[in-house]
Simulated scan of single mutants.
Amino acid sequence: MTVAQQRIGRIQWGDLQFGPGSRYHVTAIDGLDDLPDIRSEDTERPGQNGDYTGPDYTGPRTIQLGLGLRADSPDELRDLVIALRAATQPQRQPAAVQLLDQDTLVYGKIRRRNIPYDAEYLWSTGTAALEWYCADPYLYGLTEYSASTTAYSPAAGRTYPMVYPRAYGAAGQSGRISAFNGGASPAYPLLRLDGPVANPSIEQVNTGSGLTIDASLGEGEWLIIDTRTRAVLLNGSSPRRSWVRAGAQWPLLQPGANEIAYRGSALPGSPGQPSLLTLTWRDTSL
């Protein structure tokens, strides 16, 4: 009987690749499939047994990687050590750790690096250990999905005065996007709105959550909305968080099928220029 084996496979970190086909053999990995520490919102029940339990959230994820360095000479081994050291410097921002054969991506910062010196084995082999701190604990799919729609516009209705045969205006446009999250956790989509449009609104039809922008975008202007960080950037750089109408429930993509509705009003003088919503996301799990 053949027993299936789980293999880590290739891991891409910057310009370095670990695993099969490289000089850096993966010997161990910890923290990838583990559930990060839970940050609960439980409170004691005064005068009673037990707690009032609230929602559970997770803390950051820590991933530890063990490597075996394999070279053909001491000089080549030294080159491997220097390249690994150069690739694991302190970082200002997290970067992508890609597990290419597991269709998994995490964002982390190098927090520990250990490359021991062992004179008995250093002729052509060595070991190393790395640790990534992932403030964002989610596991993402490698594939980034994207879909777009124009804003909903109502049907034009009847034409008056009425003549026979009767003439009707064009049917309304749906202004909807179907998005599938193949993971087990809600995904935080990135939203881009391209003008011209006034007071655009985005609704997650499945859950009823959504947000409205109390502003107008002219032709050639766009707005980036990051639902995870809650950043709202005009033309990708100028903060406009205050444009989000109070009481917004930021839309998330639940596991499985999702439907997003996009509505907005045309600006005076540009009724024939449609606004565009572009939705970008990855499958997401914990």
Rank of each mutant, 00 (worst) to 15 (best):
M1K: 04
V3N: 07
R10M: 05
W13C: 01
D15T: 14
L16S: 00
P20F: 10
Y24Q: 05
Y24W: 03
T27Q: 07
I29P: 04
D30Q: 15
D33K: 11
L35C: 06
D37G: 15
R39L: 14
R39M: 13
E41A: 12
T43G: 10
P46A: 05
Q48M: 10
G54Y: 01
G54C: 01
G54K: 01
P55D: 13
Y57F: 11
G59F: 01
I63G: 08
Q64Y: 00
G68N: 00
L69V: 05
R70H: 14
A71G: 07
P74Y: 07
D75E: 12
L77P: 09
L77Y: 07
A83K: 10
A87I: 03
Q91C: 09
Q91I: 07
R92M: 11
P94Q: 10
V97R: 02
Q98L: 15
L99C: 05
D101V: 01
T104R: 14
L105I: 13
L105P: 07
V106Y: 04
K109V: 13
I110A: 10
R112H: 08
R112K: 06
R113H: 12
N114M: 10
A119V: 15
A119Q: 14
A119F: 14
L122F: 12
S124C: 12
A128W: 06
A135P: 00
D136M: 04
D136E: 11
P137A: 08
G141C: 08
L142W: 03
S146I: 07
A147W: 04
S148F: 00
Y152H: 15
A156V: 02
A156Q: 11
G157R: 00
R158H: 05
Y164G: 05
R166M: 14
R166E: 15
Y168T: 13
A170K: 13
A170V: 14
A171D: 14
A171M: 10
A171R: 11
S174H: 08
S174R: 13
G175T: 03
I177S: 04
I177L: 10
S178P: 05
G182C: 06
G183F: 02
G183A: 08
A184N: 08
L191I: 11
G195V: 03
G195F: 00
N199T: 15
I202C: 08
V205P: 02
G208V: 01
G208R: 01
S209P: 05
S209C: 12
I213C: 09
L217P: 06
L217K: 08
G218I: 00
E221L: 06
W222G: 10
D226T: 03
L233K: 02
N235P: 10
S237W: 11
S238M: 12
V244L: 05
R245S: 12
A248H: 02
Q254Y: 02
P255W: 00
P255I: 00
A257Q: 12
A266E: 01
P268L: 07
P271D: 07
S275E: 04
T278S: 15
L279P: 12
T280Q: 14
T284N: 02
S285Y: 04
L286Y: 14
L286G: 05
